[in-house]
């Protein structure tokens, strides 16, 4: 079974490398600042002990005061996994750095999040609607869509 790593353990490592970026670290997940997301993701991918080379899933949640994007990372080499979260507080134009450069699977998944939630990803090569059609107005999975 894949060992689900505790966020608090990794948080110490990350605080040393990127001071001030960890917002909250619980047993289930690790929440970081949006600005340092790309660097931390790169660090998680490249560090020999962590080696998170497989991005299982990206989803987004709409809490009415903020958006939260959840990254499920897995390491095939060491067989452990981690949940990484990032929040963005803007409602009109939420933006996050894209992790397509690190994990190619983020390509379609970030497009889906853009399509249904409206969160833009900087650095994404092809950010356009994927499940709904071009010309659809609005982002349906937001809580204030209807």
């Amino acid at each position: 079974m894949t060992l689900a790593l505790s966020g608090s353990d990794i948080a110490k490592q990350i605080e040393e490398k990127f001071p001030g970026s960890v917002v909250e670290a619980t047993d289930q997940n690790l929440m970081v600042e949006a600005e340092s997301l790309f660097d931390i993701a790169g660090y998680l991918k490249d560090t020999p002990g962590l080696d998170f080379d497989y991005l299982t899933l990206i989803t987004a949640v709409d809490y009415l005061d903020c958006f939260e994007v959840v990254y499920n990372l897995t390491s095939i080499k060491h067989n452990h996994s981690l949940v990484l979260k990032a929040r963005c507080y803007s409602r009109q134009n939420p933006t996050l750095p894209s992790v397509v450069g690190l994990w190619r699977t983020a390509d379609f998944q970030e497009r889906e999040i853009y399509d249904l939630m409206g969160i833009s990803f900087e650095g994404h090569p092809n950010l356009k609607r994927i499940v709904l059609w071009e010309g659809f107005e609005g982002h349906p999975l937001r809580k204030d869509f209807l």
Binding site: K128, R129, W133, E134, G135, F136
Partner: peptide, 14 residues
């Protein structure tokens, strides 16, 4: 593909 997307979107909206 941008034009294809727009064409498809127009078609669906119509």
């Amino acid at each position: 593909s941008r034009q294809l997307d727009e064409k498809e979107g127009r078609q669906i909206n119509e």
